[in-house]
Amino acid sequence: MGKLKLASFWAAACGGCDVAILDIHEKIVDLSKVADIVFWPIATDFKYKDVEGYEDGYIDVCLFHGAIRNSENEYVAKLLRKKSKVMVAFGSCAMFGGIPGLANFKQRLDILNKVYVESPSTVNPEKVFPQTEYKVPEGELDLPEFYKDVKCLADVVDVDYYMPGCPPAAHQIWAVIQVIASGNLPPKGSVVGAENKSLCDTCKRVKTDRKVKKFVRPYQIKIDPEKCLLEQGLPCMGPVTRAGCGNQCTNANLPCRGCYGPLDGVIDQGAKYISALASVVDADNPEEADKIISQIVDPAGTFYRYGLPGSLLRRAK
């Protein structure tokens, strides 16, 4: 078998997934023994035109990070899908929207107004927004269309594998690269580089079946490093979040943020969390339950922190 041809691309992303790949450190040398990079904007100088020139299926594996926020993201996703044998939705943004997906709580025009008119550092009295086509004295310029909604990668192309995380943990990335290099690919549609159990199941904190009487924000209490965070009243996403990150947040004495997304068979992590909360709230009647739950600040933004575009809700009205 010849060397693998590997591509890595960011759409609406921060580059953290690319850096997570580099976090395999010296193993990057081993990677270069089994794979040639044929497109990786953060690290190599290939252009879209180069990719357009590849034969269909030329790329063996494409690690695609980032959500689909604009028409350029969608164009490149479709281009890379055509050119790649295996397409991996890599990281929370590609899988279910990620942090850029929080924009689905807002309206397109409000976002443009905030950024290009209202923001304190902007002077734009004529309220000019970016144009998809613009004539300059020398010719024409174009920009991608900013979509109404943030979408997931699977909303625009066929996806073979999913790898969650914000970002995916480096040790998991290395394990997945080894699987890819071995050629023993899992069934299409599998979630790779993570476990199919909850973060709770892998958490060593002491649980006591204590019910929650009051929800708090992290700065309001001295967080006990030994005890279950949810039982301390912090809305920890551990019960409904896939394990695989190495429990980085809970080990740092902070609640799980939910970035690895839901487990197999769950389509809506936020709804699942509402169900989980219902079983821990200590209330004698609906009014008391309502009072306790109301102490969670911004429940929608918390329960759908990483996954609104991939949820059943998809966006706020």
């Binding site: 609406a12 992303a13 921060c14 580059g15 953290g16 997934c17 690319d18 850096v19 953060i42 926020r69 604009n70 350029e72 990620g98 942090i99 850029p100 929080l102 924009a103 709580f105 807002k106 409000d110 976002i111 905030k114 950024v115 923001s119 970016p130 920009l143 991608p144 900013f146 914000c166 970002p167 924000r217 992290p218 700065y219 943020r257 600040v297 911004d298 933004g301």
Partner: peptide, 28 residues
């Protein structure tokens, strides 16, 4: 050619959330 709109979607989030959200403007 890119815009994600952090300026807008941090509005309404708890203050202690903001550092963890805006760290995703650039992860490099």
């Amino acid at each position: 050619p890119e815009l994600r709109g952090f300026e807008k979607f941090v509005e309404g989030r708890p203050a202690e959330e903001v550092p963890q959200i805006v760290s995703r403007i650039c992860g490099v």
